[in-house]
Amino acid sequence: MFERAVAGERRALGRLLTLVERGGPAGDELAEIAHPRAGHCHVVGLTGAPGAGKSTITGRLAAAASAARADDTPGVGVVAIDPSSPITGGAILGDRIRMDEVIDREGTFVRSMATRGSSGGLALAVPGAIRVLDAVAYDPVIIETVGVGQVEVDIAGTADTTVVVVTPGWGDAVQANKAGLLEVADIFVVNKAERPGASDARRDLELMLDLGAHPVEGVPHWRAPILMTTATDGTGIDELWNEVGKHRTWLQETGELENRRQSRDRFEMLGRVDELLGAVGRARAESDHGVRLLGEVKERSMSPAAAASELLNDLLQ
């Protein structure tokens, strides 16, 4: 199936991404095949508050990237993430609607993904999806997430280039700051720039960047540019695409790209460690030993933390 996806069969690629999302042995096997062939694509993370126009910007950015692609490449990959209902596990994934209007359908592969409750699951599924899209030569891959919730911010923030979208209006920039988006942003976009208050939003961002900027000697510094866009009619999108390119070059020239990718690999590996250790721990908790320890916790002769340490004693040496 992987070879069919490489040959350009979208159905096969769609199926592979399902395997990635489901995880488990099939997902691991796929990662084994895909990982050696990946490592080429530029990953762009795009995040911001609900209603900021992220889907339209993502679609427009994908269209610009697709127009610039080489003839023998399949184009741009997009992974659009929406939250699952924490109660029912279901989700309504609606990002395609506004994207579809503006993308070049031939040169773009869009996959909607639900957070599926566990944050750990998403943290594994997204790098897995990037790896597969990368391995079948999609470049760039754009990850769109809602910029609320730590995991979503982390996912966008671990991209090669992170774009944070805000809109004019009192406090949007302040909210972005609070959400921790300011630190992860490589590029800011003030969307709906035709509206009153756009220049205020820009000024607020400049101010916060000035306050937060502490360039360290010897460490390459990139000051996030602030771009003004009107995604609905495409104003400012070419500039955004240019800026992504500049940031890509800067990453390569300064070696920062390697740093980021290493931290992303580390993030994924540690996520997997959490998952594996958790699985071992849960299995042991069901064992006779685990049940006995839980009994001691109940009797208050042992704390939960001490019981957990003893349960994993051999692994913690």
């Binding site: 889907s55 309504i92 609606g94 990002d95 609607i97 506004r98 209007e101 609905t232 009619d233």
Partner: peptide, 8 residues
Amino acid sequence: GTYVEQAI
């Protein structure tokens, strides 16, 4: 231009 409703 045209109008496309967002997925509310």
